[in-house]
Design a protein around this nucleic acid. Structure first.
Lengths: 245, 245
DNA sequence: GAGTGGTCTAGACCACCAT
DNA sequence: TGGTGGTCTAGACCACTCC
């Protein structure tokens, strides 16, 4: 049963509400949001809370704050919205209105490949290996190889594998998915992978390897995603950091 | 490493200080930072200010906050530190301790290609076009095509082009670099580009197109970076967002 | 000068973790 | 139970923009 529910706090609700109003063009690109003072009245909250909500929108690239002027709504192109961060294929599918299908090729326990474990997970440990082929308009686009660690994940239904693993983890298992590291490279892949993705003879694919962690810093998902190069597009929004490591 | 904006406020100084202590293992991975209350005493500041500093470290992936326990220092692998965000080649070079050289191939006014303008900049407008070839151990790795808009940039010295454009923009011109959008694809490139990068016959390169903006939302730099596929590696750290667009 | 965002404060109450 | 982080508040002062 779900242990952790989505935190319903004020700043998130406000951020979500303003984000929706931007999405629905109630607040239009090139115009300013109501002032922070005015938003305080609108939402009945303190200014710091409003500012924390606006900070989230700033990080997402929805607004740009300008001292002495206000919060300018940025012009987000519908199909250039950031596809980085931790977002599942299913969420993307929904957001971008794609017509995609998912075919589950395998679902069984396997050894975790060293290329994914990277010394951060016991090598030789087994995990639930789910292999899924993603197609758009019947054309194979992505091959996902997921390794789900047990604990915290012991079983996954066929339905969950075919729709959305993340929704299952968060809503059904109550897992608190927190962060991920990922790595993008271009590699020559195996004959099998090349064949599944109908690659050229060079067998080059874009490979995204990621390790996803829970809030308690436990890794729970290792993934290798193989993308058909000519259909691959990674879009990102980034802000210049004020501090450096 | 190249400083971003001078840290003149308390929260940034604190964040920078803690980041350095983590970097120098004064705070070690797997251990907890002093509690927020204790940090208040250490830095003589209020708790909210400490929390804003810790929030920056959390976004960077340096720490993970755990309710009831403390702020855990995460294990950052030296060479897996995020290479996303807005970071210049020169900053990376220094951070990762690479031995890289930069060769300036061209520096002249040119028309901005439509593939970079994307309708966000007047097509047909000219800009200062700087072409640079990046080599590591004499091997060409990256070809950078920069288009610098005038205003705000009218001239760039050979020295600045060969070392770091960002340092020049921020320190000399006082520009407030704020955010960027970028797009990663894999494409067949021109014969000239392929030749400069010594690509295979398939002429495939990883292409990163970006548009960088100032704090007043003015675009000032359009870039296309062509990477040799077998040497390309993009590393990212991402947190699961609490709100969706 | 009036209005905007940028920063910082001191305090409050809550939820969670350990003992 | 005491310590930790999570959230929110009301107010203060400053820097900047625009009229």
């Amino acid at each position: 049963m779900a242990r952790n529910k989505p935190t319903k706090n004020k700043q998130n609700s406000i951020a979500q509400d303003i984000a929706l109003k931007i999405r629905h063009e109630q607040y239009r690109p090139g115009t300013f949001l109501p002032s922070e003072h005015h938003l305080c009245d609108l939402y009945g909250s303190s200014r710091e809370t409003i500012r924390k909500a606006l900070e989230q929108l700033t990080e997402l690239g929805l607004i740009q704050k300008m001292r002495g002027k206000g919060s300018l709504v940025l012009d987000i192109q519908r199909f250039s919205f950031p596809v980085s961060g931790i977002t599942s294929f299913q969420e993307l599918n929904k957001t971008l209105g794609m017509h995609a299908t998912t075919e589950v090729l395998q679902k069984k326990n396997d050894m975790i490949p060293d290329t994914l474990a990277k010394g951060r997970v016991d090598s030789g440990r087994t995990a639930l290996h789910i292999e899924r082929l993603r197609k758009i308009d019947q054309v194979p686009i992505v091959l996902d190889e997921d390794y789900l660690l047990n604990p915290p994940i012991s079983e996954v239904s066929d339905a969950a594998a075919a729709s959305s693993l993340y929704a299952y983890f968060e809503k059904e298992l109550g897992l608190d998915i927190s962060y991920a590291t990922k790595e993008i490279t271009v590699e020559k892949v195996s004959d099998r992978t090349a064949s599944l993705l109908a690659l050229d003879e060079n067998k080059l694919a874009v490979v995204i390897r990621s390790m996803t962690y829970l809030a308690d810093t436990t890794p729970f998902q290792l993934t290798a995603s193989y993308h058909k190069p000519d259909r691959f597009k990674f879009i990102d929004f980034a802000r210049r950091r004020k501090i450096s490591f």
